[in-house]
């Protein structure tokens, strides 16, 4: 149970990740960017893997990418997802060079292929929590 609770698994942000979720709430996909060498990293972490700097800023991603892989869930491993089966989870290569995962909404599984262009959208789960989804671009 945390501030986001709504009957599904929820993020439990730390000081390293809170900005990402605050960005979601504002309809922005924010990625950690190294203040020293500019390398973008995801998921958030304290140290730049390219130059070991611990200084970073948050930059807004374009929100576009292509499908790298996917799965279609037919079994609810958490009761909160029973009503949504089957749902598509896509692994996406973002334009910024990192990946992210989210559900693909508004599309049939038959469109899925490696390289499918997608863009991000934002869905409010609760008044405090917004989750990313992808739609076909």
């Amino acid at each position: 149970m945390n501030a986001y609770d709504y009957g599904k698994p929820t993020p439990d942000p730390t000081a390293d990740t809170q900005a990402y979720w605050d960005g979601m709430k504002q309809g922005k996909l924010l990625l950690q960017t190294c203040s020293d060498c500019g390398t973008i990293r995801h998921y958030p972490r304290p140290v730049c893997p390219a130059c070991y700097s611990m200084e970073h800023r948050w930059t807004e991603a374009k929100g576009t990418g292509t499908v790298h892989s996917w799965t279609i869930s037919h079994h609810a491993f958490h009761p909160g997802f029973k009503g949504e089966l089957p749902y598509i989870l896509v692994t996406v290569d973002l334009a910024e060079g990192v990946r992210m995962q989210a559900q693909l909404k508004g599309a049939d599984a038959s469109v899925l292929k490696v390289g499918l262009p997608v863009r991000i959208a934002f869905e409010a789960a609760t008044k405090d929590l917004t989750l990313p989804v992808f739609v076909v671009a």
Partner: peptide
């Protein structure tokens, strides 16, 4: 911890769901 924060809230919860994209990628390639 990172899976718990960034993937489970989206519905990727169990190992079958986390590993399936590896198998799908192998199939597609």
């Amino acid at each position: 911890r990172l899976i718990g924060e960034f993937e489970m809230p989206l519905g990727a919860i169990a190992p079958a769901q986390l590993y399936a994209p590896m198998a799908r990628r192998h199939m597609e390639l």
